[in-house]
Design a protein around this nucleic acid. Structure first.
Lengths: 200, 200
DNA sequence: CGCGCAATTGACTCATATCAAGATACGTGG
DNA sequence: CCACGTATCTTGATATGAGTCAATTGCGCG
C-alpha cells in the first residue's frame, strides 16, 4: 500500500528529470506541475487538487516538477505496483488510456489558449475552467477558492502577475466577479465569463 | 484492412468534433492537426509526416481538425478494429499507452514554448525540433525540407507569419541558416540554433 | 514567359511586459 | 484580540516585442 506524506506550502514533491519511481495521489491540498527554463521562466502545466493523480503515465523520468501550493497530504505508491497491476488487468490499461486521452485533450486546449488567446480570454477561461473541471454548478453565482497565487496563475496562462491582476480588476469593474478575499472570489455571471473565454 | 485515400494540398481529412470513427496513418505527404476559434484564429497542434498516425487515442470525437498540407496519401482503418484488437492483446494497450505518453510530453514541451519563449526561441526550437524528432543528423550542416507554409509555422508557434519571416531573415543574416528555396533550408550550425531555443 | 500567390520587408501601432510605488491581507507575537 | 511587519497583490508610468497594415519581391506553376 501507499505511504502518506505531508508537504508544507512551497515544498517540492518531485523534480523534472528525476526517475519516475512513484505514482502520487493528492489527498488534501493542492499542487502545481510545472516546467522551467534555465533562466527561471516557468510554465505551469496543471494544478491538482484532492483526488487527482500524477505519475500514472509518462516516460522513464518525470517531465514536470511538482510542488505543494498549500499545505497538502499526498499518497505515494511505488510505480512498479502499477506496472504489474497493468499487466494483470487489461481493463486497467484501458482506464489509464482514457485518462491519458483526457489529459492530452486538456493539453491541446491549453495550447490553443497559450498560443492564440488574449489576456482577457485567458483569465476568463481559467476561472470558468477551474469550476467546470471540478463539476461545479454554473447557474447563478459561483463562489470559488483559488488555492494558487497570482504568480502561479500567471505562469499557467503565459502572462505576468501584473496582467492577471489588472484583468481581474477589470472583470470586477465590469461586475463579472467579486473579490471576496485574495483567494476567494465569486463569479457573478459565469456564463458571460465563459463567453469571454471564446470557448472553441 | 485499411482503405487508402488521396488528398490534395489543403483538403480536409477530419473536422474537430466529428465522431471518431477512424484511425489514420500517413503514407506519403504531410498533414497538420489544428484547433480553431470561431473568429478564425488557429493553433496548429502538430504536423504529421509519413509513418505517423492520428485518431489512435482520444475521446469520442476528434479533438482536432486534420488537413493535408501537400498532396498526401492516408490509410484509414475503422476504429472498431483497433478497439477489439486492444481487448485481445494487452501488449498493444501498453504500446498505445507509451505512444500517449510521448504525445503528452511533446504537448507539455509545446506549452512551455507557447507560454514562455520569445519569437526567436520559438523558431529556433521549431527548426531543430523538426530534425531531432525525425532522427536527423546533427553534426555539421543539416538540409531540411519544410512541407508547411509560413502561416502553418506561425500557427504552430503562436506567432504571425511576418514575425516568422523576420526571424528566419535574422537567422540568415547571422549565418545560422541558408534559405535554399522557400521550403528548403540548411541549418549551418544546428547546435548554435538549438542553444538559442533554450532547450530546458 | 508572365501571372499569381506566398513570402519578405517596411512603417507604425498596440497589447502586454517591465519597472516602480503604494495598498491590502494575512500571520505572528505581544 | 489587536498591532505590527511582511509578503502579495494592485495600481501607475513607461518600454518594447510582436502584431497590424501596406507595399514590394520573387518563387513556382501553368
Amino acid at each position: 500500500m501507499g505511504i502518506t506524506v505531508n508537504k508544507a506550502a512551497g515544498q517540492t514533491i518531485v523534480v523534472e528529470g528525476d526517475p519516475r519511481t512513484h505514482v502520487f495521489r493528492v489527498l488534501t491540498g493542492a499542487l502545481r506541475l510545472y516546467k522551467a527554463l534555465a533562466d527561471g521562466r516557468r510554465q505551469v502545466i496543471d494544478f491538482l487538487v484532492a483526488g487527482e493523480c500524477f505519475g500514472l503515465i509518462g516516460p522513464e523520468h518525470y517531465s514536470c516538477s511538482v510542488e505543494a501550493i498549500v499545505a497538502s497530504t499526498v499518497a505515494r505508491y511505488p510505480r512498479g505496483n502499477l506496472e504489474s497491476a497493468l499487466r494483470a488487468d487489461p481493463e486497467l490499461a484501458m482506464r489509464l488510456l482514457e485518462l491519458a486521452e483526457t489529459e492530452l485533450e486538456r493539453a491541446h486546449d491549453q495550447m490553443l489558449l497559450l498560443g492564440r488567446k488574449s489576456a482577457e480570454e485567458k483569465v476568463a477561461a481559467f476561472l470558468t475552467g477551474f469550476v467546470r473541471r471540478r463539476g461545479g454548478q454554473f447557474d447563478g453565482r459561483v463562489r470559488i477558492r483559488l488555492p494558487m497565487s497570482r504568480q502561479d496563475m500567471a505562469d499557467y496562462l503565459g502572462l505576468t502577475i501584473e496582467t492577471v491582476s489588472r484583468t481581474l480588476t477589470r472583470f470586477r469593474q465590469e461586475g463579472l466577479i467579486v473579490l471576496a478575499t485574495r483567494q476567494e472570489l465569486i463569479l457573478q455571471r459565469p456564463l458571460a465569463l465563459e463567453a469571454l473565454a471564446e470557448a472553441s
